[in-house]
Design a protein around this nucleic acid. Structure first.
Length: 581
RNA sequence: CGGGGCGUAGCGCAGCCUGGUAGCGCACCUGCCUUGGGAGCAGGGGGCCGGAGGUUCGAAUCCUCUCGCCCCGACCA
């Protein structure tokens, strides 16, 4: 492609509303343009990167035995009503009506559609196993779209759905997808971790998220310093500690803590560490019930764990008014001693104490609150977030380390939630009707490209991993009006294309400085500078974007050597000369 | 949803408080000059000042309402 005939509007200045690096660089590099909140144009260069990602995904999905289909983006409400999600899904589901006033939605995910497809076409166990996937635009009307392609409302996603006769079948399908995902992200040249994830409201037995490690990631990941354990903090377990009794504790004593509401204030005022206090949080379930969560003062509640313990779908922090009405105690001085509502305590509460707790009276706390003696709890459970330094829940030796990650893929065993609701069944070898067991497997295509940039850039611009680069090579003609320069550059451009290399030829009549700055910004892995300097020595100048290493290539050998370097980088998925990230 | 901020040329911004002919930088067009790290000179094009109402002789500026966009907030007990 000739730059002079391409649409590649680079920006010198960073757009004001872009707040993560990948978004800034994609806008500056002329890859995307915002059309509305969370909705983007993919310009030619951005589309090329997207297509690269899609190609890798297709190759690995096909290799794993999945079959590509394409489902509609506009989905009739009746399918969603069959599973009850038309009511459940909430405001993220963009609903619309056609001219006959029939309800439709823009598909945010396609379990209903695929299940409808399969129940109508698959009758026999002999047609199984089946794994169907599509690469399609989805729409989720996010409360707060942000970070460019990382959290858009319209976004491109690969979603796959497996259908099997039994649990063993899904287990195998799941494992195949897990392995395929590892290959996909490795081929993209990404530094990622597969982590255990919460299954959310959908239920099911297991789920892994594929996380690209990046400081800007929206998810927190816990991993073990010693073993293979890694999980989203939403899911990461806390290793239970020995239960400690404190029989000989001094008697309960009320102490005045005027105006001290926050745990930090109370601990400081009483001269104890926050870990010597127990805090009580009040939450309201979707059933309207108030529950007190009791945690060590320095710990954080994990609402998802608590939700799972309570078996409810929604859980919200109570407002100050609700707290005072439901507990009769003033906000800031809540405690389990004499509590009027259910108390669920974190495991750490039985591994410590006596505690300083709220007195359920204004401006006072209780010293020496002892579990069993002064207060009781309905149930103990792991309801806090793990923290860096905690012992690993799986091995004795390890400690928890924390990371930030961008969720680029998610694999999931669905069970029969959709197939049962939609009566997707086949006959088995006994002639018995069996409900299909499903799995689903998603990859955010645009998000992965954004994550790749998040992980591969420097202060000058993007540093593409070879497999995702829109072009593998950028040729810069220092002075395109110089016939020798242009001739040599055009020749190399042709020869590289003949060798299957994708090349962008910067033939613009611009100042060299502008072209070099754009070259850095665009970040193609290999850059060839064609100028009179090196030509005088019968050579092109080759520069690697990542390392900055420069070398001179004799004219006659240039095309072959560059093509070989590109092939090598594509084969390993790791750019030659790179640091392996 | 709550709170805050911003909408002025393709991009980044000033002007608004204190109403009086809409500006700057970059980008763009023409010419000259220049060609190894975002040059220089000269000339030029481009705006419903987000939209609607109001106040006023007069509104980018003041008031009201709207729409859009961005940021912060779901641990505080």
């Amino acid at each position: 492609m000739r730059y002079s005939q391409y649409l590649l509007p680079t920006l010198r200045e960073t757009p004001g509303d872009a707040d993560v690096v990948s978004q800034q660089l994609m806008m500056r590099a002329g890859m995307i343009r915002k059309v509305a909140a969370g909705i983007y144009d993919y310009l030619p260069l951005g589309l090329r990167a997207i297509r690269r990602m899609e190609t890798i995904v297709r190759e690995e999905m096909n290799r794993a035995g999945a079959i590509e289909v394409l489902m509609p983006m506009v989905v009739p409400a009746e399918l969603w009503e069959e599973t009850g999600r038309w009511q459940q899904y909430g405001r993220e589901l963009l609903r619309l009506k056609d001219r006959k006033e029939t309800d439709f939605c823009l598909g945010p995910t396609h379990e209903e559609v695929i299940t409808e497809l399969v129940r109508g076409t698959v009758r026999s166990y002999r047609q199984l196993p089946l794994n169907l996937y599509q690469i399609q635009s989805k729409f989720r009307d996010e409360i707060r779209p942000r970070f460019g392609l990382m959290r858009g409302r319209e976004f491109i996603m690969k979603d796959a759905y497996s259908f099997d006769l039994d649990q063993a079948g899904v287990d195998a399908a799941y494992d195949r997808m897990y392995q395929a995902y590892r290959r996909i992200f490795a081929r993209c040249g990404l530094n990622f971790r597969a982590v255990e994830a919460d299954t959310g409201n959908i239920g099911g037995s297991s789920s892994h998220e594929f996380m690209v490690l990046a400081e800007s990631g929206e998810d927190a990941i816990a991993s073990c310093s010693h073993c293979e354990y890694a999980a989203n903090v939403e899911k990461a377990e806390c290793r239970p500690q020995p239960v400690v009794c404190c029989d000989d504790a001094p008697p309960l004593e009320q102490v005045a803590t005027p105006g001290r509401k926050a745990i930090g204030e109370v601990a400081e005022f009483l001269g104890v560490p926050a870990s010597a206090t127990a805090k009580a949080l009040v939450l309201i379930t979707d059933g309207g019930e108030a529950v007190m969560a009791l945690l060590r003062g320095d710990h954080e509640l994990n609402p998802i764990k608590l939700k799972n313990v309570l078996g409810c779908a929604e859980l919200e922090m109570a407002t100050d008014e609700q707290i005072e009405k439901l507990t009769g105690a003033p906000v800031g001085y809540l405690g389990p001693v004499g509590a009027q509502i259910r108390v669920v305590a974190d495991l750490a509460i039985q591994s410590g104490g006596p505690w300083i707790t709220g007195a359920n009276v204004s401006d006072a706390h209780l010293r020496n609150s002892v579990l069993g003696r002064d207060f009781t709890v309905e149930r103990f459970a792991d309801i806090r977030n793990v923290e860096a330094g905690d012992p690993c829940p799986r091995c004795a030796a390890g400690r928890i380390e924390m990371w930030r990650g961008i969720e680029v893929g998610h694999v999931f065993k669905l069970g029969t939630k959709y197939s049962a609701a939609m009566r997707a069944t086949v006959l088995d070898d006994q002639g018995q009707e069996r409900t299909l067991v499903m799995g689903c497997y998603g990859i955010g295509i645009g998000r992965t490209v954004a994550a790749a940039i998040e992980q591969n850039h420097d202060d000058k611009g993007i540093v593409w991993p070879m497999p995702l680069a829109p072009f593998q090579v950028l040729i810069t003609l220092v002075n395109p009006k110089d016939e020798t320069v242009r001739g040599a550059g055009e020749q190399l451009y042709l020869e590289l294309q003949q060798r299957g290399v994708e090349v962008l030829l910067d033939d613009r009549d611009e100042r060299p400085g502008s072209k070099f700055a754009d070259a850095d910004l665009l970040g193609m892995p290999l850059r060839v500078t064609v100028g009179s300097k090196a030509l005088a020595e019968g050579a092109f100048e080759l520069q690697e974007r990542r390392s900055g290493a420069r070398s001179l290539l004799p004219l006659a050998e240039a095309a072959d050597r560059i093509a070989a370097q590109v092939r090598a980088a594509l084969a390993t998925g790791i750019e030659e000369g790179g640091d392996g990230r």
